[in-house]
């Protein structure tokens, strides 16, 4: 396999480390304008071609024989122009990094087969670390439409929702449900009530995961309504006339 990687100084090591572990070892050519990329390529025993992108891709005839093209630059406009170039010279598989999620459609339209969305990954990880009682959706892999929905319980822990109830609510869905307690252990007992700091994870295809998370939301709302009703009734029962 022959891989052509267009990289910048900040992505060169990351890309080459991934490629180096492939078996059988592919032939790799790195194209970059950055001298740091030349240094890293040499250290890793990889062919380096210096020059501006995407012009260099059009200029070298030999690149037409490559099997895979990788656009891994810090700038989406150059990633898009590199993807266009890789496509136009007939490279069958094109992978691109995406630095701003809003440019995903454009990158796909210009010919990227797989888009690795760094922006979404970073921002959703930050959101997941900070959010409580709110769903966060993460796409861990670009080769399948796999989505991970995560919610960390805080105030909702008082509702006393059990793992078994979640499983029942999601029985008809083709998704994988997992609950992890605050110590990082998987909760396996269905009768256990979820506590503050516990995490609910849903994994599956994007649309189904979204629907499943809505079903879990409905379950929580039902419990909230029940709690609110019983609280209102307890107030009514304890109210006494003055005097």
């Amino acid at each position: 396999m022959k891989i052509l990687a267009a990289v910048s100084r900040s992505t060169v090591a990351r890309v080459l480390n991934c490629i180096q572990v492939l078996v059988p070892k592919p032939h790799v050519a790195v194209v970059s304008l950055d001298e740091e990329a030349a240094l890293a390529s040499k250290a890793m025993g990889v062919e380096f071609i210096g020059g501006p992108l995407p012009e260099k891709i059009y200029a070298i005839d030999e690149f037409k024989e490559y099997d895979v093209g990788i656009a891994a630059l810090d700038n989406d406009s150059i990633n898009i122009s590199v993807v266009k170039a890789l496509r136009s010279i007939g490279i069958p598989l094109v992978i691109s990094l995406l630095n701003n999620s809003a440019n995903r459609d454009l990158l796909v339209k210009e010919g990227a087969d797989y888009v690795i969305d760094i922006d979404s990954y970073v921002s959703q990880n930050i959101a997941a670390s900070l959010s409580m009682d709110k769903w966060v959706y993460v796409k861990p892999l670009s080769i399948v439409n796999l989505t991970l929905a995560v919610v960390r319980l805080a105030r909702r822990s008082i509702l006393g929702v059990k793992l078994g109830e979640l499983k029942s609510a999601l029985r008809s869905k083709s998704i994988h449900l997992m609950a992890i307690d605050r110590l990082g252990k998987v909760i396996s007992d269905d009768s256990v009530e979820l506590n503050a700091g516990d995490i609910i994870l849903l994994t599956g295809i994007e649309s189904e995961v979204y629907e499943a998370s809505m079903d879990v939301e409905k379950l929580f709302r039902r419990h909230e309504e029940t709690l609110a009703r019983s609280f209102a009734e307890s107030l009514r029962a304890s109210t006494r006339p003055y005097g």
Binding site: D76, N100, A102, N103
Partner: peptide, 9 residues
């Protein structure tokens, strides 16, 4: 419209 829109950062 059907003009490609790029988001610059």
């Amino acid at each position: 419209m059907d003009i490609p829109a790029f988001h610059s950062e």
